[in-house]
Design a binder for these strands. Sequence first.
DNA 1: TAGATTGTTAATCGATTAACAATC
DNA 2: TAGATTGTTAATCGATTAACAATC
Lengths: 214, 214
Amino acid sequence: MEGKAPRIPDSVVRRLPVYLRHLQSILENDVDTIASQTLGEALGLNPAQIRKDLAYFGAFGQKGVGYDVRFLILSIERILRIHRDVPVALIGAGRLGAALCLYNQIQVRSGQNRMRIISVFDRDPAKTGSVIGNVAVEPDTHLESALRSRNIRIAVIAVPASDAQEVADRLTVAGVTAMLNFAPVALRVPDSVHVRAADFTSELQSLAYYAFDE
Amino acid sequence: MEGKAPRIPDSVVRRLPVYLRHLQSILENDVDTIASQTLGEALGLNPAQIRKDLAYFGAFGQKGVGYDVRFLILSIERILRIHRDVPVALIGAGRLGAALCLYNQIQVRSGQNRMRIISVFDRDPAKTGSVIGNVAVEPDTHLESALRSRNIRIAVIAVPASDAQEVADRLTVAGVTAMLNFAPVALRVPDSVHVRAADFTSELQSLAYYAFDE
DNA sequence: TAGATTGTTAATCGATTAACAATC
DNA sequence: TAGATTGTTAATCGATTAACAATC
Protein backbone atom coordinates (compact mmCIF):
# COMPACT_ATOMS: atom_id res chain seq x y z
CA MET A 1 0.00 0.00 0.00
CA GLU A 2 2.92 2.32 0.67
CA GLY A 3 2.80 3.68 -2.88
CA LYS A 4 5.51 5.65 -4.63
CA ALA A 5 9.06 5.87 -3.31
CA PRO A 6 9.93 9.37 -4.53
CA ARG A 7 13.75 9.15 -4.39
CA ILE A 8 15.09 12.10 -2.47
CA PRO A 9 17.87 14.28 -3.95
CA ASP A 10 21.08 14.20 -1.96
CA SER A 11 21.05 17.99 -1.76
CA VAL A 12 17.79 17.74 0.19
CA VAL A 13 19.11 15.11 2.59
CA ARG A 14 22.17 17.24 3.27
CA ARG A 15 20.11 20.29 4.16
CA LEU A 16 18.05 18.46 6.77
CA PRO A 17 20.79 18.49 9.44
CA VAL A 18 21.18 22.23 8.84
CA TYR A 19 17.48 22.78 9.47
CA LEU A 20 17.63 20.54 12.51
CA ARG A 21 20.52 22.39 14.07
CA HIS A 22 18.89 25.77 13.67
CA LEU A 23 15.58 24.52 15.05
CA GLN A 24 17.36 23.15 18.10
CA SER A 25 19.11 26.44 18.67
CA ILE A 26 15.94 28.57 18.44
CA LEU A 27 14.12 26.20 20.77
CA GLU A 28 16.54 27.30 23.45
CA ASN A 29 15.23 30.83 22.91
CA ASP A 30 11.67 29.63 23.50
CA VAL A 31 10.58 29.94 19.90
CA ASP A 32 7.67 27.52 19.44
CA THR A 33 6.70 28.13 15.84
CA ILE A 34 8.62 29.16 12.74
CA ALA A 35 7.67 30.04 9.17
CA SER A 36 9.72 28.89 6.18
CA GLN A 37 10.31 32.58 5.45
CA THR A 38 11.98 33.13 8.84
CA LEU A 39 13.98 29.93 8.68
CA GLY A 40 15.12 30.80 5.19
CA GLU A 41 16.34 34.21 6.27
CA ALA A 42 18.32 32.71 9.14
CA LEU A 43 19.99 30.10 6.93
CA GLY A 44 20.32 32.08 3.72
CA LEU A 45 17.97 29.75 1.85
CA ASN A 46 14.87 30.25 -0.28
CA PRO A 47 11.71 29.54 1.78
CA ALA A 48 10.12 27.65 -1.12
CA GLN A 49 13.10 25.33 -1.09
CA ILE A 50 12.65 24.62 2.60
CA ARG A 51 8.94 23.86 2.17
CA LYS A 52 9.63 21.64 -0.80
CA ASP A 53 12.43 19.80 0.98
CA LEU A 54 10.14 18.97 3.89
CA ALA A 55 7.22 18.10 1.63
CA TYR A 56 9.22 15.19 0.20
CA PHE A 57 8.65 13.45 3.51
CA GLY A 58 5.17 14.61 4.50
CA ALA A 59 3.19 17.62 5.70
CA PHE A 60 4.71 18.94 8.89
CA GLY A 61 3.41 22.53 8.97
CA GLN A 62 0.14 24.29 9.47
CA LYS A 63 -1.13 26.66 6.81
CA GLY A 64 -1.30 30.24 8.00
CA VAL A 65 0.78 29.36 11.05
CA GLY A 66 4.10 27.75 10.17
CA TYR A 67 5.92 24.80 11.66
CA ASP A 68 5.83 23.73 15.29
CA VAL A 69 9.52 23.73 16.19
CA ARG A 70 9.42 20.76 18.55
CA PHE A 71 7.38 18.64 16.17
CA LEU A 72 9.60 19.52 13.22
CA ILE A 73 12.72 18.59 15.18
CA LEU A 74 11.26 15.19 16.02
CA SER A 75 10.12 14.73 12.43
CA ILE A 76 13.51 15.49 10.90
CA GLU A 77 15.22 13.23 13.43
CA ARG A 78 12.92 10.39 12.35
CA ILE A 79 13.47 11.10 8.67
CA LEU A 80 17.24 10.95 9.11
CA ARG A 81 16.93 7.92 11.41
CA ILE A 82 18.73 9.72 14.20
CA HIS A 83 15.84 9.62 16.68
CA ARG A 84 17.85 6.97 18.52
CA ASP A 85 21.58 6.50 19.04
CA VAL A 86 23.43 5.52 15.87
CA PRO A 87 26.68 3.59 16.27
CA VAL A 88 29.59 4.79 14.15
CA ALA A 89 33.09 3.38 13.63
CA LEU A 90 36.25 5.39 13.17
CA ILE A 91 39.15 3.88 11.25
CA GLY A 92 42.45 5.57 11.98
CA ALA A 93 43.41 6.92 15.40
CA GLY A 94 45.94 9.49 14.27
CA ARG A 95 45.77 13.13 15.15
CA LEU A 96 42.81 13.95 12.96
CA GLY A 97 40.90 10.80 13.91
CA ALA A 98 41.50 11.39 17.60
CA ALA A 99 40.35 15.01 17.33
CA LEU A 100 37.18 13.99 15.52
CA CYS A 101 36.50 11.30 18.11
CA LEU A 102 36.91 13.66 21.06
CA TYR A 103 34.83 16.30 19.32
CA ASN A 104 32.13 13.73 18.74
CA GLN A 105 32.10 12.81 22.42
CA ILE A 106 31.56 16.44 23.41
CA GLN A 107 28.66 16.75 20.99
CA VAL A 108 27.11 13.52 22.18
CA ARG A 109 27.46 14.44 25.84
CA SER A 110 25.86 17.83 25.31
CA GLY A 111 22.90 16.17 23.61
CA GLN A 112 23.50 17.80 20.23
CA ASN A 113 24.14 14.62 18.33
CA ARG A 114 23.13 10.99 18.47
CA MET A 115 25.73 9.78 15.97
CA ARG A 116 28.13 8.06 18.37
CA ILE A 117 31.61 6.88 17.54
CA ILE A 118 31.66 3.71 19.61
CA SER A 119 34.49 1.80 17.91
CA VAL A 120 37.94 3.00 16.88
CA PHE A 121 40.44 0.92 14.94
CA ASP A 122 44.08 1.39 14.04
CA ARG A 123 46.67 -0.86 12.44
CA ASP A 124 49.52 0.57 14.51
CA PRO A 125 50.18 -1.69 17.54
CA ALA A 126 51.53 1.36 19.37
CA LYS A 127 48.06 2.92 19.25
CA THR A 128 46.09 -0.24 19.91
CA GLY A 129 44.98 -0.47 23.51
CA SER A 130 45.23 3.27 24.09
CA VAL A 131 42.07 5.21 24.85
CA ILE A 132 40.59 8.27 23.13
CA GLY A 133 38.26 9.91 25.59
CA ASN A 134 36.11 6.95 26.58
CA VAL A 135 36.74 4.69 23.59
CA ALA A 136 39.53 2.10 23.39
CA VAL A 137 41.51 1.76 20.18
CA GLU A 138 41.23 -1.77 18.79
CA PRO A 139 43.56 -3.52 16.34
CA ASP A 140 42.29 -3.35 12.79
CA THR A 141 42.31 -7.11 12.61
CA HIS A 142 39.11 -6.95 14.66
CA LEU A 143 37.43 -4.70 12.12
CA GLU A 144 35.12 -7.07 10.28
CA SER A 145 33.97 -9.13 13.24
CA ALA A 146 33.48 -6.11 15.49
CA LEU A 147 31.46 -4.14 12.93
CA ARG A 148 29.23 -7.08 12.20
CA SER A 149 28.59 -7.98 15.82
CA ARG A 150 27.89 -4.35 16.74
CA ASN A 151 25.75 -3.86 13.65
CA ILE A 152 27.65 -0.75 12.58
CA ARG A 153 26.64 0.63 9.19
CA ILE A 154 28.45 3.97 9.21
CA ALA A 155 32.20 4.57 9.29
CA VAL A 156 34.60 7.49 9.30
CA ILE A 157 37.84 6.94 7.39
CA ALA A 158 40.79 8.87 8.82
CA VAL A 159 43.74 6.81 7.60
CA PRO A 160 46.53 7.85 5.23
CA ALA A 161 45.53 8.10 1.56
CA SER A 162 47.62 5.03 0.75
CA ASP A 163 45.47 2.85 3.05
CA ALA A 164 42.06 4.35 2.39
CA GLN A 165 40.93 2.20 -0.54
CA GLU A 166 41.83 -1.01 1.26
CA VAL A 167 39.92 0.19 4.33
CA ALA A 168 36.91 1.07 2.17
CA ASP A 169 36.98 -2.38 0.62
CA ARG A 170 37.06 -4.07 4.01
CA LEU A 171 34.30 -1.84 5.36
CA THR A 172 32.14 -2.68 2.37
CA VAL A 173 32.59 -6.39 2.96
CA ALA A 174 31.81 -5.87 6.65
CA GLY A 175 28.40 -4.41 5.75
CA VAL A 176 29.10 -0.70 6.11
CA THR A 177 26.84 1.26 3.73
CA ALA A 178 27.86 4.86 4.43
CA MET A 179 31.37 6.30 4.77
CA LEU A 180 32.76 9.71 5.51
CA ASN A 181 36.22 9.86 3.93
CA PHE A 182 38.83 12.28 5.26
CA ALA A 183 41.67 10.74 3.25
CA PRO A 184 42.74 12.75 0.20
CA VAL A 185 41.88 10.12 -2.38
CA ALA A 186 38.81 9.21 -4.46
CA LEU A 187 37.39 5.89 -3.25
CA ARG A 188 35.76 3.33 -5.52
CA VAL A 189 32.88 1.45 -3.91
CA PRO A 190 29.79 -0.41 -5.13
CA ASP A 191 26.71 1.68 -5.96
CA SER A 192 25.05 0.36 -2.82
CA VAL A 193 27.59 2.17 -0.64
CA HIS A 194 27.52 5.93 -0.07
CA VAL A 195 30.84 7.72 0.26
CA ARG A 196 31.07 11.37 1.19
CA ALA A 197 34.36 13.18 0.70
CA ALA A 198 35.50 15.38 3.58
CA ASP A 199 38.96 16.30 2.42
CA PHE A 200 40.52 19.34 4.08
CA THR A 201 43.12 19.94 1.39
CA SER A 202 40.67 19.88 -1.52
CA GLU A 203 38.31 22.24 0.26
CA LEU A 204 41.09 24.72 0.92
CA GLN A 205 42.42 24.49 -2.62
CA SER A 206 39.07 25.19 -4.21
CA LEU A 207 38.62 28.21 -1.93
CA ALA A 208 41.83 29.69 -3.31
CA TYR A 209 40.02 30.15 -6.62
CA TYR A 210 37.54 32.53 -5.01
CA ALA A 211 39.97 34.34 -2.76
CA PHE A 212 41.87 36.06 -5.50
CA ASP A 213 39.43 37.03 -8.25
CA GLU A 214 40.03 40.71 -7.61
CA MET B 1 40.45 42.36 -25.36
CA GLU B 2 39.99 39.67 -22.71
CA GLY B 3 36.39 39.13 -23.80
CA LYS B 4 33.70 37.20 -21.92
CA ALA B 5 34.04 36.18 -18.28
CA PRO B 6 32.09 32.92 -18.37
CA ARG B 7 31.30 32.52 -14.61
CA ILE B 8 32.38 29.08 -13.48
CA PRO B 9 29.94 26.82 -11.56
CA ASP B 10 31.11 26.04 -8.04
CA SER B 11 30.74 22.31 -8.76
CA VAL B 12 33.43 22.69 -11.43
CA VAL B 13 35.81 24.58 -9.14
CA ARG B 14 35.42 21.93 -6.48
CA ARG B 15 36.31 19.11 -8.85
CA LEU B 16 39.57 20.71 -9.93
CA PRO B 17 41.47 19.74 -6.75
CA VAL B 18 40.24 16.18 -7.23
CA TYR B 19 41.63 16.09 -10.75
CA LEU B 20 44.85 17.66 -9.54
CA ARG B 21 45.38 15.12 -6.79
CA HIS B 22 44.87 12.17 -9.09
CA LEU B 23 47.18 13.62 -11.74
CA GLN B 24 49.88 14.11 -9.12
CA SER B 25 49.52 10.52 -7.97
CA ILE B 26 49.74 9.00 -11.46
CA LEU B 27 52.76 11.13 -12.25
CA GLU B 28 54.60 9.15 -9.59
CA ASN B 29 53.86 6.03 -11.64
CA ASP B 30 55.47 7.65 -14.69
CA VAL B 31 52.24 8.22 -16.56
CA ASP B 32 52.86 11.09 -18.98
CA THR B 33 49.54 11.34 -20.78
CA ILE B 34 45.95 10.64 -19.78
CA ALA B 35 42.61 10.61 -21.62
CA SER B 36 39.44 11.98 -20.06
CA GLN B 37 38.05 8.46 -20.34
CA THR B 38 40.81 7.01 -18.14
CA LEU B 39 40.66 9.84 -15.64
CA GLY B 40 36.90 9.49 -15.45
CA GLU B 41 37.13 5.79 -14.70
CA ALA B 42 39.63 6.39 -11.91
CA LEU B 43 37.51 9.07 -10.27
CA GLY B 44 34.05 7.74 -11.01
CA LEU B 45 33.17 10.70 -13.22
CA ASN B 46 31.82 11.12 -16.73
CA PRO B 47 34.65 11.88 -19.20
CA ALA B 48 32.53 14.50 -20.96
CA GLN B 49 32.20 16.30 -17.65
CA ILE B 50 35.95 16.36 -17.17
CA ARG B 51 36.52 17.75 -20.67
CA LYS B 52 33.84 20.36 -20.20
CA ASP B 53 35.17 21.38 -16.79
CA LEU B 54 38.63 21.97 -18.21
CA ALA B 55 37.28 23.68 -21.32
CA TYR B 56 35.88 26.48 -19.15
CA PHE B 57 39.46 27.61 -18.68
CA GLY B 58 41.05 26.84 -22.02
CA ALA B 59 42.22 24.00 -24.26
CA PHE B 60 44.72 21.86 -22.39
CA GLY B 61 44.58 18.59 -24.30
CA GLN B 62 45.58 17.28 -27.65
CA LYS B 63 42.96 15.67 -29.89
CA GLY B 64 43.63 12.02 -30.50
CA VAL B 65 46.19 11.94 -27.68
CA GLY B 66 44.79 13.18 -24.39
CA TYR B 67 46.22 15.49 -21.74
CA ASP B 68 49.87 15.84 -20.87
CA VAL B 69 49.87 15.10 -17.14
CA ARG B 70 52.60 17.55 -16.17
CA PHE B 71 51.11 20.36 -18.23
CA LEU B 72 47.62 19.74 -16.88
CA ILE B 73 48.90 19.79 -13.30
CA LEU B 74 50.56 23.15 -13.87
CA SER B 75 47.46 24.46 -15.63
CA ILE B 76 45.06 23.48 -12.84
CA GLU B 77 47.43 24.93 -10.25
CA ARG B 78 47.37 28.22 -12.11
CA ILE B 79 43.60 28.18 -12.50
CA LEU B 80 43.14 27.66 -8.77
CA ARG B 81 45.87 30.21 -8.01
CA ILE B 82 47.85 27.65 -6.04
CA HIS B 83 50.92 27.72 -8.29
CA ARG B 84 52.58 29.62 -5.46
CA ASP B 85 52.28 29.40 -1.67
CA VAL B 86 48.94 30.68 -0.39
CA PRO B 87 48.84 31.98 3.18
CA VAL B 88 45.93 30.78 5.30
CA ALA B 89 44.82 31.72 8.82
CA LEU B 90 43.31 29.38 11.38
CA ILE B 91 41.00 30.77 14.04
CA GLY B 92 40.66 28.47 17.04
CA ALA B 93 43.49 26.35 18.42
CA GLY B 94 41.39 23.69 20.09
CA ARG B 95 41.76 20.01 19.42
CA LEU B 96 40.25 20.10 15.96
CA GLY B 97 42.08 23.27 14.95
CA ALA B 98 45.38 21.89 16.17
CA ALA B 99 44.85 18.61 14.32
CA LEU B 100 44.03 20.44 11.09
CA CYS B 101 47.09 22.65 11.51
CA LEU B 102 49.46 19.73 12.06
CA TYR B 103 47.89 17.82 9.20
CA ASN B 104 48.38 20.85 6.98
CA GLN B 105 52.05 21.03 7.90
CA ILE B 106 52.58 17.42 6.90
CA GLN B 107 50.92 18.01 3.54
CA VAL B 108 52.92 21.16 2.92
CA ARG B 109 56.19 19.50 3.88
CA SER B 110 55.57 16.57 1.56
CA GLY B 111 54.89 18.96 -1.30
CA GLN B 112 51.26 17.92 -1.75
CA ASN B 113 49.76 21.28 -0.93
CA ARG B 114 50.68 24.94 -1.17
CA MET B 115 47.86 26.20 1.02
CA ARG B 116 49.85 27.04 4.15
CA ILE B 117 48.39 27.80 7.55
CA ILE B 118 50.85 30.46 8.64
CA SER B 119 48.83 32.21 11.37
CA VAL B 120 46.82 30.72 14.23
CA PHE B 121 44.66 32.72 16.62
CA ASP B 122 42.86 31.88 19.84
CA ARG B 123 41.05 33.97 22.40
CA ASP B 124 42.12 31.74 25.29
CA PRO B 125 45.22 33.25 27.00
CA ALA B 126 46.17 29.74 28.09
CA LYS B 127 46.66 28.79 24.43
CA THR B 128 48.25 32.03 23.32
CA GLY B 129 52.01 31.72 23.05
CA SER B 130 51.93 27.96 22.67
CA VAL B 131 53.13 26.41 19.44
CA ILE B 132 51.38 24.00 17.07
CA GLY B 133 54.05 22.30 15.01
CA ASN B 134 55.96 25.29 13.75
CA VAL B 135 53.29 27.97 14.16
CA ALA B 136 52.82 30.09 17.28
CA VAL B 137 49.31 30.74 18.58
CA GLU B 138 48.58 34.46 18.71
CA PRO B 139 45.93 36.28 20.75
CA ASP B 140 42.82 36.97 18.74
CA THR B 141 43.21 40.68 19.44
CA HIS B 142 45.94 40.61 16.76
CA LEU B 143 43.55 39.18 14.20
CA GLU B 144 42.69 42.19 12.05
CA SER B 145 46.12 43.79 11.98
CA ALA B 146 47.94 40.50 11.40
CA LEU B 147 45.68 39.38 8.56
CA ARG B 148 45.96 42.72 6.82
CA SER B 149 49.71 43.00 7.16
CA ARG B 150 50.21 39.40 5.98
CA ASN B 151 47.69 39.84 3.16
CA ILE B 152 45.74 36.74 4.18
CA ARG B 153 42.52 36.21 2.23
CA ILE B 154 41.59 32.69 3.32
CA ALA B 155 40.69 31.53 6.83
CA VAL B 156 39.68 28.32 8.57
CA ILE B 157 37.15 28.74 11.39
CA ALA B 158 37.53 26.14 14.14
CA VAL B 159 35.97 27.92 17.10
CA PRO B 160 32.85 26.93 19.08
CA ALA B 161 29.54 27.57 17.31
CA SER B 162 28.74 30.38 19.72
CA ASP B 163 31.79 32.37 18.58
CA ALA B 164 31.75 31.56 14.87
CA GLN B 165 29.52 34.38 13.59
CA GLU B 166 31.52 37.00 15.43
CA VAL B 167 34.74 35.55 14.02
CA ALA B 168 33.26 35.55 10.51
CA ASP B 169 32.28 39.21 10.91
CA ARG B 170 35.76 40.18 12.04
CA LEU B 171 37.39 38.17 9.24
CA THR B 172 35.17 39.90 6.70
CA VAL B 173 36.20 43.32 7.97
CA ALA B 174 39.83 42.21 7.89
CA GLY B 175 39.57 41.50 4.17
CA VAL B 176 39.17 37.71 4.19
CA THR B 177 37.15 36.61 1.17
CA ALA B 178 37.01 32.83 1.59
CA MET B 179 36.29 30.85 4.75
CA LEU B 180 36.15 27.18 5.60
CA ASN B 181 33.79 26.81 8.53
CA PHE B 182 34.07 23.81 10.86
CA ALA B 183 31.69 25.26 13.46
CA PRO B 184 28.20 23.73 13.46
CA VAL B 185 26.33 26.91 12.59
CA ALA B 186 25.23 28.66 9.37
CA LEU B 187 27.22 31.86 8.91
CA ARG B 188 25.82 35.02 7.37
CA VAL B 189 28.35 36.96 5.31
CA PRO B 190 28.20 39.49 2.44
CA ASP B 191 27.82 38.08 -1.08
CA SER B 192 31.41 39.02 -1.77
CA VAL B 193 32.63 36.45 0.78
CA HIS B 194 32.62 32.70 0.11
CA VAL B 195 31.88 30.40 3.02
CA ARG B 196 32.18 26.65 2.75
CA ALA B 197 30.63 24.49 5.46
CA ALA B 198 32.77 21.62 6.73
CA ASP B 199 30.70 20.42 9.61
CA PHE B 200 31.46 16.93 10.87
CA THR B 201 28.17 16.47 12.70
CA SER B 202 25.98 17.47 9.76
CA GLU B 203 27.88 15.20 7.42
CA LEU B 204 27.47 12.24 9.75
CA GLN B 205 23.79 12.94 10.32
CA SER B 206 22.98 13.08 6.64
CA LEU B 207 24.79 9.79 6.11
CA ALA B 208 22.48 8.13 8.62
CA TYR B 209 19.68 8.58 6.09
CA TYR B 210 21.46 6.34 3.62
CA ALA B 211 22.76 3.78 6.05
CA PHE B 212 19.40 2.35 6.99
CA ASP B 213 17.21 2.31 3.88
CA GLU B 214 17.12 -1.46 3.93
C1' DT C 1 -13.59 37.43 8.36
C1' DA C 2 -8.81 38.99 6.90
C1' DG C 3 -4.10 37.92 6.96
C1' DA C 4 -0.64 34.58 6.88
C1' DT C 5 1.54 30.59 5.39
C1' DT C 6 1.62 25.96 3.83
C1' DG C 7 1.87 22.23 0.19
C1' DT C 8 2.14 21.65 -4.60
C1' DT C 9 2.25 22.50 -9.45
C1' DA C 10 4.31 24.97 -13.14
C1' DA C 11 8.18 27.81 -14.83
C1' DT C 12 12.86 28.69 -14.71
C1' DC C 13 17.34 27.88 -14.29
C1' DG C 14 21.58 25.35 -14.32
C1' DA C 15 24.34 21.26 -14.56
C1' DT C 16 25.28 16.80 -16.65
C1' DT C 17 25.58 13.83 -20.49
C1' DA C 18 25.48 12.60 -25.42
C1' DA C 19 26.95 13.34 -29.86
C1' DC C 20 30.06 14.61 -33.29
C1' DA C 21 33.05 17.53 -36.23
C1' DA C 22 37.78 18.74 -35.88
C1' DT C 23 42.24 17.04 -35.70
C1' DC C 24 46.26 14.82 -33.69
C1' DT D 1 45.74 6.68 -43.55
C1' DA D 2 43.00 4.78 -39.56
C1' DG D 3 42.10 5.15 -34.84
C1' DA D 4 41.72 7.89 -30.91
C1' DT D 5 40.34 11.71 -28.36
C1' DT D 6 39.53 16.52 -27.72
C1' DG D 7 36.54 20.79 -27.54
C1' DT D 8 31.96 22.19 -28.19
C1' DT D 9 27.16 22.27 -29.26
C1' DA D 10 22.75 20.27 -28.50
C1' DA D 11 19.77 17.27 -25.68
C1' DT D 12 18.64 15.67 -21.34
C1' DC D 13 18.08 15.67 -16.80
C1' DG D 14 17.42 17.50 -12.27
C1' DA D 15 17.18 21.11 -8.91
C1' DT D 16 15.62 25.68 -7.58
C1' DT D 17 12.31 29.26 -7.54
C1' DA D 18 7.78 31.39 -8.44
C1' DA D 19 3.06 31.31 -8.08
C1' DC D 20 -1.16 30.27 -6.06
C1' DA D 21 -5.14 27.56 -4.36
C1' DA D 22 -6.11 25.60 0.02
C1' DT D 23 -6.72 26.52 4.65
C1' DC D 24 -5.47 27.68 9.36
